[in-house]
Design a protein around this nucleic acid. Structure first.
Length: 338
DNA sequence: CAATCGTGGTC
DNA sequence: TGACCAAGATT
């Protein structure tokens, strides 16, 4: 690797490409500050840029500073996050603001160990904040870097294995420079997402092609390697539909389930034999398929916090995306029938 | 360590 | 069309 790096400047190639062809106008790149970087990096975890942008804009309107976020309630935060998924990110981001305000005098630290103490900040996000917020050396390994490095260095093994991750982190530590880190980190991400793509990579446009292992060995399509896919299980869930003149009955889900702390139709173990169906919907999570059955019911008892919401009030609570679709569809049908 | 945690984009 | 994947973290 050292020979390769000495005869071909990986860093300079990435940086020069980023300056010419990389992204420079993303919302969190304009008038950059550490809080914007923190918010964007949390939102971007396992979520595509195009999906995040409108959420980021709305978030910064509602919670423009760490202090503003620290003063928000969990319900306000979840309402702003609804539809983006992985809701523990939202709750951790609020906890992060409380921690930064209480323990760090409102300042996001430019220190890897201090960053790692903040809720929701793992090894990738800590490195990203160092690079993007402070232009300091911060090592980043995400899906883009794993794919790009697997091809460029010829790293074998399943991308989702621990061994593969450790190997890529070691390469990243070795490659990451001590200067111009904002540009280098952005260059890695931009190259990975726009050129070294999962499928149909644009090798003709890649500045790293002269020294790319996968290109030289015709393995661009077969790297990185994937572990054999698992069959994901199917589950059935039953939910209660109770809508009257005072609104729709919802309950706040507990935090040990999917959609933690979000408001949703009350969930039941099994419907009664006389229950009348209100409808159903299907939803695919990353790890199982849900078949949701909705049953007409009244006066459902639950340990969870319950409340009724009118149609207008539904906009002010955090609802799971598929359930919001079902509810809005069902209420529209009601309106047409009446 | 492997499972869990959402949703939408892409081809 | 469905399988893969996305600026991962937590337990």
């Amino acid at each position: 690797m050292s020979h390769k790096l000495s005869t071909f400047s990986f860093v300079e190639s990435v940086n020069a490409w980023q300056q010419q062809h990389g992204r420079h106008q993303l919302p969190w790149q304009l008038n950059v500050n550490p809080y914007k970087v923190l918010v964007s990096e949390i939102m971007l975890q396992q979520t595509q840029v195009a999906t995040v942008i409108p959420y980021f804009e709305r978030w910064m309107q509602n919670f423009p500073t760490v202090e503003a976020l620290a003063q928000a309630t969990e319900d306000q935060v979840l309402n702003c996050w609804q539809g983006l998924g992985y809701y523990s990110r939202a709750r951790n981001l609020r906890r992060a603001a409380l921690y930064i305000t209480a323990e760090l005098a409102g300042q996001i630290p430019a220190d890897i160990e201090e960053l790692r103490k903040i809720p929701g900040i793992g090894p990738y996000t800590a490195g990203a904040i160092l690079s993007f917020a402070f232009n300091q050396r911060g090592v980043i390994v995400d899906g883009n870097v794993k794919r790009l490095f697997a091809r460029y260095f010829g790293i074998r093994g399943a991308v989702n294995s621990t061994a593969f991750s450790k190997t890529v982190w070691a390469y990243a530590e070795a490659v990451t420079p001590t200067q111009d880190n904002r540009r280098f980190a952005q260059g890695l991400l931009d190259l990975g997402s726009t050129v070294c793509k999962p499928r149909l990579p644009l090798c003709d446009a890649c500045p790293l092609r002269p020294e790319c292992f996968a290109w030289a060995h015709n393995q661009v399509e077969s790297l990185p390697e994937r572990s054999p896919k698992k069959t994901i299980p199917k589950r059935t869930g039953h939910f209660v539909w109770d809508y009257n003149s005072e609104g729709l009955l919802l309950e706040q889900r507990n935090d040990t389930s999917v959609w933690p702390k979000l408001w949703a139709l009350p969930e039941i173990d099994t419907p009664t034999s006389t229950a009348k169906s209100k409808g159903e919907f299907h939803h695919q999570f990353s790890h199982y398929k849900l078949h949701a059955c909705i049953w007409h019911s009244k006066d459902h008892q639950s340990d969870n916090k319950q409340s009724r919401f009118t149609v207008n009030q539904l906009d002010t609570v955090g609802l799971p995306a598929p359930m919001r679709k079902f509810i809005e569809s069902a209420l529209d049908l009601n309106a047409e029938e009446s």
